[in-house]
Design a protein around this nucleic acid. Structure first.
Lengths: 245, 245
DNA sequence: GTAGTTCGATTGTCCGGACATACGCATTGA
DNA sequence: TCAATGCGTATGTCCGGACAATCGAACTAC
């Protein structure tokens, strides 16, 4: 093996990050085969001219991603299963784009409304206070795929309709300087109401996949509450998750 | 504030872990209020008689859990939202028990069958090779809640029917020395077939929530493949997830 | 032949220090 | 008044070392 690894000390990119990226690429690329040992940390550090803590930090980040497993007294080996991406907070838009689907969005509603009790509770704003309401239809290959209804607290974001159709809500938030931190999700199913059936081109009573989500930024503010319905024949939630140790 | 923190150097429990547990307890308990600064690392280390790397390791583990946020030049503060548990690989049995539901299980089938192409591909075993097939009905308050169909490679585990009814599959795996590592899940929805409707006491065509899962241990072996159907009026998937930074 | 023991290898934990970097705030200047 | 500058503070990165805990394998004794 003997993998070509090197770090650039003049780069502003942290050394441990450079290393972890190279290792991840080697795993993805197949240069590091599943089950193979990584070689001990001390020798690896010496070979790269790094200290052991730095090498450990690089390795640890890949362990956290589920790509590597450490065994005391044995070594660090490449996990040898098809690890895709662990679950992360992603928008439907990004998901579709990553799948090469070229998603389209149609904004149905983009107004300011008084918050209902449900919305107020989710976002932590006053009942009957102003909130943005955005209703969108997400299409793939010209077919409706999901109906998205979102509520956003006022003053956070410029909700331009054209931009909403060109990109995703999360991407707009990030570029508005909002640091997304966590989200609370509920995934369920139910039969379509007449209105939902009409919007999604399904028969009434057809099974729908539902998702509700409240998203928080790193200051703890709720920045978005959404109620989404998906056509289960067109979309399902697929993700990898790791056992917290 | 001035929070009483202390570590026991004679304990075999790592120091950073002692500290992170005390901090987590303080947050949960309310002694550390959301938004409050944690005090700088150097001073905290000095106060506890620890080194800064050790304190950082403790803090980092809580940052990874989503409980704390670090800001360079500012400090570390408690995240100020209702962070529950982040998503983890859990069994339905544990979920229900945690919710105080006292789940019951009825084992419908517990045999060895030849692997179909689908099962063989998921588990990475030979087609038509032996695999265990376990079908279970999960009940809460006497009502059927979910129908679970699992396939397990041979030789991994002693699949005692009585034990399957008394506890969950994951718990049995863990006590058999299997280290669960990751899982790949797909959540969807569809209408109930006649057989499914009958098992779950729902009308035919009723919306069902479906989940398929392949679970891997830390050597990369697939240790379980499951196809589950849930009654959406009785169960939904609820979880918190963090943005990977 | 089998069970117990020793031993080398490797990661786990911890230390004390150094410099870099970014944020917030007060000061300064236009 | 408002913008630019500088400074203190806190985290981010990195180093080199030390000892402990654990695993696997070779070895030894019965």
């Amino acid at each position: 093996m003997s993998l070509e690894l090197s770090v650039d000390r003049s780069s502003p990119v942290p050394l441990y990050f450079q290393l972890s990226q190279q290792l991840e690429a080697a795993i993805e690329h197949g240069a590091l085969t599943p089950g193979s040992l990584l070689g001990n940390e001390i020798e690896l550090a010496a070979r790269l001219g790094l200290s052991r803590p730095t090498v450990r930090q690089a390795i640890q980040s890949l362990v956290d991603k589920g790509l590597l497993v450490r065994r005391r007294g044995v070594g660090t080996q490449v996990v040898h299963s098809q690890v895709k991406r662990p679950l992360e907070l992603s928008s439907l838009y990004d998901d579709l784009e990553a799948a090469g689907q070229r998603p389209a969005t149609k904004v149905l509603v983009n107004t300011v409304v008084p918050a209902t009790a449900e919305v107020a509770a989710a976002l932590g704003v006053a009942e009957d206070g102003d909130v943005h309401r955005v209703e969108r239809l997400r299409l793939a290959h010209g077919e409706p795929m999901a109906y998205l209804c979102n509520f956003i607290p006022p003053g956070l974001l410029d909700l331009d309709t054209a931009q909403l159709e060109a990109t995703g809500l999360y991407r707009m938030m990030r570029s508005a300087g909002i640091t997304l931190h966590s989200a609370r999700q509920t995934i369920g199913a139910r039969g379509a109401t007449a209105a939902e059936a009409d919007r999604l081109a399904e028969p009434e009573g057809a099974p729908l996949l539902t998702m509700q989500r409240v998203t928080f930024d790193d200051t703890g503010r709720a920045v978005e509450y959404g109620t989404h319905t998906y056509r289960p024949t067109r979309y399902s939630f697929e993700f990898q998750l790791l056992v917290r140790t």
